Lab assay of single mutants.
Amino acid sequence: KKIKIDLKKGPEGLGFTVVTRDSSIHGPGPIFVKNILPKGAAIKDGRLQSGDRILEVNGRDVTGRTQEELVAMLRSTKQGETASLVIAR
């Protein structure tokens, strides 16, 4: 099931960490939400869960991207702006 979640970045950030699983010589594996932090946009919104697979960030497919690339995409969202995620659960 795909779910679109918009998180408005506040002073505590987006409020979640990510982890890559099953990376191989063929490229990075899928990226999942690792933890929801006690402060930040994710816990206020309440929909994002540990174990959700991140498919898109701000309309860009993240398949084949590294964890570092995904984190850079999320960090490029400025405070007060919205990060738009599509996740699979």
Rank of each mutant, 00 (worst) to 15 (best):
Q67N: 14
L55V: 08
V18L: 15
Q79T: 06
V57S: 02
D22A: 05
G46T: 09
A72H: 13
T17C: 08
T63H: 05
R75F: 06
D22I: 09
I3P: 00
P30T: 04
K8H: 06
L37G: 10
V62K: 02
Q79L: 08
D6N: 15
I3E: 05
V57I: 11
A72D: 13
I5Y: 01
R53K: 13
D45R: 01
T63N: 09
T66E: 06
A72S: 12
G29W: 10
G64F: 09
Q49V: 13
K44Q: 06
I36G: 00
R21H: 10
G13Q: 06
A42H: 01
G27I: 12
N35R: 03
I31P: 01
G40S: 05
V33W: 00
A41G: 08
I31A: 14
L7E: 01
E56I: 09
G15Y: 00
A42W: 01
A83P: 02
D22Y: 03
G29V: 11
I36R: 01
E69H: 04
E56G: 09
L55Y: 11
R65S: 08
Q67K: 06
T20I: 05
R53A: 14
H26K: 10
V18G: 02
R21I: 06
K2Y: 08
K9S: 15
G46H: 12
S76R: 06
I43G: 06
V62N: 03
V62T: 08
L70G: 05
I43H: 10
A42N: 02
D61A: 11
K44C: 13
R60T: 04
G59F: 04
G46Q: 09
L74W: 08
P38I: 09
L55I: 08
V33A: 03
P30R: 09
G29N: 09
V71F: 05
P30H: 11
G13F: 01
T77A: 12
V71P: 03
V19Y: 15
K44Y: 06
I36Q: 01
V57Y: 15
V57D: 01
E56L: 09
N35A: 13
D45F: 01
R53F: 07
S76Q: 14
I87K: 01
T20M: 13
P30D: 15
S50Y: 11
G27T: 12
L85M: 10
K44A: 09
G15L: 00
E68R: 04
S50Q: 10
N35K: 08
R75H: 08
L85N: 03
G29I: 11
G29R: 07
G46E: 06
K9L: 15
A88V: 05
D45P: 01
K2Q: 03
K4F: 15
I87S: 02
I3N: 03
S50P: 12
E56T: 13
V62W: 05
D22H: 04
I3A: 02
R53L: 11
G80L: 05
T82M: 13
M73W: 09
H26V: 14
G46P: 02
G15N: 00
F32N: 06
R21L: 14
K39P: 02
K1N: 15
L74R: 02
N35C: 14
G80P: 03
K4I: 15
K9C: 15
T20E: 15
K4C: 12
D45E: 12
D61N: 11
I54L: 08
G15A: 00
A41R: 05
R60A: 10
G64H: 06
R60L: 07
D22M: 15
L85Y: 02
R65G: 06
R47Y: 03
I31L: 14
D52M: 02
D52H: 01
A72I: 14
P38Y: 15
S84N: 07
S24V: 07
E69W: 06
